[in-house]
Each structure stands twice: as C-alpha cells, then as structure tokens.
Design a protein around this nucleic acid. Structure first.
Lengths: 254, 254
DNA sequence: ACCTGAACACCGTTCAAGT
DNA sequence: ACCTGAACACCGTTCAAGT
C-alpha cells in the first residue's frame, strides 16, 4: 500500500524545461490487474452500477479508450471482478463425515463474501463459471457432494440450483440496502421506514381479493434475510442429501 | 388492430394553409396503458435492455419527456410491465388434497409466462410485489400452502424462496438464449456452439487443480433447463411439505 | 505495443415554454 | 393538464493518430 507509487514519484517537481504531460500522468503502467482492482474499489464504494468504463478510467487518470488494451469490454471487466472477489472465499477440505454441514458452511461463506462486495452477485447470475477462482468454488462444492456419495447427475444439477439460490439471495440482500437514495442518511433506518410503508400498504389491501395476504402482513414483512437464507439452504441441502441416501442405501447409511 | 388509427387518419392529406405539425402527430392520446403496452412490445421483440424511455417514446412517435406525465420514470415503467405480464398467469382454485402438485403447477405456469417475455424476470428479482396481479400470484401461492396446513411463518419464508428460485431460473433460461449477438443466425444453434466451447474448455482444465470438475464435464454441460427446474422445484416443495407434516402430525395426516 | 482525443450513437431526467 | 424541444450530465465502443 505505502509502496504503490514507487517508480512514478508524483511528489517530485517537474525539472525545468521538461514540460509536464497534459495532466497528472498515469502513476503506474496500466495492467489488467490494476484495472480490475480499481473497478472493485468503485464497486465497494458505490455499487455495480457506478462501475462504468469511463468512471474506472477517470479513477486511473486516463480516458475510457485506454482500458480496451487490457480488457475486451465492460462484460469481461465484470467477470474479472467477480472472479477476483471469488478468490476471497475460503474453501473447506472435505470431511466425508460432515459433508452436509460443510456444504452449508461453504454456502454461508460465499454469501458473506458476495454481500461484502455490494451487488457483485448480479454478475454471477446466469454466468457459466470459467474464471479460475469461480471454478475453485465449484470444485469445492462438487468435491463435498462427491464425498457424500451424491450421484454425479444430481451433483451437477445441485451446483446449478445452489448457485441460483446464492446469487438470488445475495442480490436480494444488497439491493434492499442499496435502494437508499444518495443523500438520505442511514441506509438501515431508511430501509426500516420503507418496510413500514410496505406493511401499511399490505394492511390496507382489500381483504376480499387478498384474504391470505391480508392475514399474513407480519410474516410477509419480517425482513429476516438470515432466516430466509437458512430456510432455503436447509431445504436445498436436505434435498441433495436425500439423493445421496437413495444411492448409498445398498451399502448401508448412517 | 385494424382500428388503431381511427380519429387521427394520418392517410388524409393536409388541407391547404393548415400547416402540418412537425412530424406525424401522436395517433392516440398517450395513456399509462398505452405506454406500458408499447414497452412490452419492445421487450418481446428485443429484450429488456432495449426498453429505454427514448425507444418507447420513439415507438409512440413522441419524445422521451412525454412519458413522464404517465410514468414516474424507468423503474416504475419496468414494474408496471412486470405486473401486466403477471396478469397472464393462470391461477388455481386450491384443492387441499393436491396442494403440493398445484403449487408445482403454478410454479411451472409462472415460468412459462415469464420466459415467454424475454428477461422480464430481471425486474422481479429483489422486488417486493405491490402490483395487483403480482399480489394475486402471491395470494394464490399462500392460499395453496394454507390449504396444505403449512404454518404461516414457513409459508412467508417459502413464497420468498420460491420467488427467488423462479426469478433466477427464468433469468438463466432467457439470458442463455439472449446471449446470441445481433446478426448471428439461429439463437439455438449459436447456443449449442457456445456450449461446445464450454465443454472443450472444461475438458482442457488442469486435472490436478479441478479433479472433480474434470470428471464431470458431461454432467455440468448437460444444458437441461427443464431438468434443473424440476429438480429444484421438487426439493423446494418437498421441503415446504415437510413442515406441513410436522405441524399437522397431532391431527393425523394422509 | 500501448495509449489517447475525439467522435459516434446512444442513455435518463429536468425544465421552461407552449397549447 | 398534457405535451414537447432542448439541454444536462452521462453511457460503451471505435478509430485514427500519436509515442
């Protein structure tokens, strides 16, 4: 961190007769790594929508055209960002005796990392993983299911379903937080107020058209992001395990 | 359809001395309904990304500013589009004896309607339903679970989880189809070729880093959108039903 | 090889002015 | 009340020109 500007030394005055370049020159030579780092900084500070080619370029003290030497376009930049984020996910060493709990722990870890980078999960939705770190995560999930005796076909479907669940949940979690308008004080307070408005709206609904909804206002507005996550995760893992039980029944199962 | 231009008669010549307005005048008075109809036409033809305020205005023969009298902005337009689409979903009359199968049928119906309107499901993701037709769908889901004896708290979590699953699945389904570049022939052929490239890429992965993935190339690239949907749906509904069984055990259950 | 200024073809939203 | 032209502050990407 402290040595980031070595070599460029922008703190040095310009020698006489050696006219300075147009503006502050790029401190470091542009690299793909630097572009992705910068993009993630913008993501963390302001969310995925703020990560534009122009904005990232500006942050690097250059123009948008310069990025295209290191990245094929916005889509690739987003995928590189996701893979970089995926590198933060800590992966388990499979222990066949606790594969279900490990699968849940891994899911919680993915959720933690995703939601710590705003709405990065939007990029993951409907993306076939090809980046090295995203593939590490898939490998870990599949290895756990393999250790648990889940048939290959089921495991293949399950990574996909689990991925959909994780992406959707992370997006849900962060978009609620992010709905706060730019200068509207504390996001949490704002969201609570928004939830209260929803509660009022639901309570005011015509009871003849929406009898069930009307009687469930509290249950439907309980927020409860964690509860929803654990509920869905538990169903998913139990479902996956049920196939493992079927497959291993002849061999005897705990 | 044939009577759309009544009243405006753009086929009449302009009477002498009655200077024509700038371009073709708006044929029909602008209404929110007309704006939403037009937006959905653009959606169906070119996908959600093509639905811009400017594009919809152009389609209506006016400028983008004109839309703001009928719609507060792009976000509201998108939500109105989704609710209009949700009106197409056929809802069941609950039959307590087959509530699980009905819940599945409803999920398939939602999937059918969503995927028939390109990537409209993107709008649904992370949106609290407030439109009348979206609420009809939620009411139907909750009524089915109520008929099945699912506890309120579980039913509340389940609509949310089921919604996440349906949205994610519909997005996955349509984004694959939509990845086809503008003038690249048949989308299905294109996607098959893309899948083959993925297969090759997976097969070429280093086996020491990705031992499990390497041994599952076929299972991971089986496409199988329907299979994945039924797999996830079955797990979800079985999971929900397991809570109903717990709750109704004292009363005796079929 | 890498970088860039300028341009192209777009965005959403606002606002004063018209009818 | 409804509609609009013009403007504002943005987009992603391309390309010829520079170093």
């Amino acid at each position: 961190m402290a040595e980031a500007d070595r070599g460029a030394r922008p703190d040095m005055p310009t020698p006489p007769g050696r006219r300075p370049r147009k503006a502050a020159p790029a401190r470091q030579p542009l690299t793909q790594e630097l572009v992705v780092d910068t993009a993630i900084r913008v993501l963390d500070a302001e969310g995925l929508e703020a990560v534009t080619m122009r904005r990232v370029a500006q942050e690097l003290g250059t123009g948008p055209a310069s990025l295209y030497a290191h990245v094929s376009g916005k889509e690739e930049l987003r995928e590189l960002m996701l893979d970089r984020v995926a590198a933060e996910i800590r992966l388990p060493v499979p222990d066949p005796a606790r594969w279900q709990e490990q699968l849940k722990e891994l899911a919680r870890e993915i959720r933690r990392v995703y939601t710590s980078h705003r709405d990065i999960a939007v990029v993951s939705m409907a993306l076939i993983p090809t980046g090295p770190h995203l593939l590490d995560v898939a490998e870990a999930q599949l290895a756990l299911m393999h250790a648990g005796g889940v048939p290959k076909r089921i495991a293949g479907l399950a990574v996909s379903t689990l991925g959909m669940f994780l992406d959707a949940d992370a997006i849900e979690d962060t978009l609620h937080h992010a709905k706060t308008p730019a200068g509207a004080g504390d996001p949490w307070t704002y969201f609570q107020e928004y939830l209260n408005q929803i509660r009022e709206y639901f309570a005011a609904l015509p009871k003849d058209r929406y009898p069930t909804v009307s009687g469930m206002v509290d249950e439907l507005t309980a927020e409860d992001g964690d509860g929803r996550f654990e509920f869905g995760l538990d169903m998913l893992v139990r479902g996956i395990a049920s196939y493992a039980a079927e497959a291993s029944r002849p061999a005897g199962d705990g």
